[in-house]
Design a protein around this nucleic acid. Structure first.
Lengths: 204, 204
DNA sequence: AGCTAAGTTGACCAACCGGTCATGTTGGTG
DNA sequence: CACCAACATGACCGGTTGGTCAACTTAGCT
């Protein structure tokens, strides 16, 4: 059981790191985060053994939240709109969070907690996709792994204009979603990624 | 007229920087580049007044090459396949070049030479899109600016698995291209970006 | 109240960065 | 061959980073 002030400082740190990361991206300095939390730099390393550990903790939280959102969407009656809402939630998360945006590409999937959260996310994405596929609103050759990879896309596409057109990502989300529909489907030249692809990419 | 060894060193530097940037991304150190070129660090700043200048020079080159590719594709008879080839060329460039990939999002469009190259790229993209739109192979509400923004997408989407599945970007390029077709088109919630959006985003 | 372990602190460290500059070297010209 | 300007060089600078640690403070139990 931690001491009272330690618990409070830890919570302050997580809040500060979360805010600072989302505003300034993955390479904010530890000093900045500590200052925002109102503690000394040493305290940060007292709670998290390294910067990576701190970043992972916050990233993990957000992945879990997204997975939970997806799970609740599984109970919705319309499979197509459920999938669209899931993808919207994923894109929105990144639209408001620079670090999450960069992390999607860069951060090590090697960290075990992140691996776990990613797996949970992959499962719910597959479930949502399967329902939509069965309902005929999504083409047959698209899998849950595709959806996970596509979560980043709208924000990344709109990123160069994010400062002036903050809602532009919605346009590209819908454009991509239209590409998922069966009506315009043409054969894809490369097979969908497998679970093994993800795990071997992680261990490298 | 430069001295003989100066010209040779400059060329060595450009080669080294190009290779190092494409392998390790935008934040390779100048020291690394200099070492690869076999010259001292000071020599780098003798040829380029700052790191930004060096990176811009190389980026500019690649943007120009891509624009030239697009212009030659304007002479092709099939507008749809011309557009697809253009987007393939853009995605391929990034699949082999980490710096170009990051630059698409991050680098200052403030640099005048890059602005010029971007404008040229925007023009050819608009021309290719207009032809494809008119031929009915691309939906009416998609513009050349959309295409420019979408050039990054396939590689970014496939980035997490790039080490194990180096050709995966092709899958997402085709998926996005299917979203551009009229058959599956649903109304888009946000208007396409304008030229002003790009210029105001650049000056900020 | 008093004691101890848990926690906080900020000075400190080594490594690295982009960039500068006095010094030495060398290509090209007459 | 001699000479000078163009160029190469690497030690050096100020700044920043993630991370450490001995000294101090304090929460919480008896």
């Amino acid at each position: 059981m931690p001491r009272a002030d330690a618990a409070r400082n830890r919570s302050l740190l997580i809040d500060a790191a979360s805010a600072e990361l989302s505003e300034h991206g993955l390479d904010v300095s530890i000093a900045r985060i500590a200052a925002r939390a109102g503690v000394a730099k040493g305290t940060v390393f007292n709670h998290f053994s390294s910067k990576e550990e701190l970043v992972s903790a916050i990233l993990c939280d957000q992945l879990d939240t997204l997975a939970a959102t997806g799970e609740s969407l599984l109970e919705q009656s319309d499979p197509g709109s459920a999938l669209l809402r899931f993808m919207t939630a994923g894109a929105e998360l990144q639209a408001n969070d620079r670090a999450f945006c960069e992390a999607a590409t860069a951060v090590s999937r090697a960290h075990p907690a992140i691996r776990a959260a990613s797996d949970r996310l992959a499962q719910v994405a597959e479930a949502l996709t399967a329902r939509a596929r069965q309902a005929g609103v999504v083409r047959a050759d698209v899998t849950g792994h595709d959806i996970v990879l596509l979560l980043n896309a709208p924000t990344q596409i709109a990123a160069p204009l994010a400062t002036t057109r903050s809602d532009l990502w919605q346009r590209y989300l819908r454009l991509i979603f239209d590409g998922l529909r069966p009506e315009a489907a043409h054969e894809l030249p490369v097979a969908a990624p497998t679970s093994e692809d993800f795990t071997t990419a992680a261990t490298r």
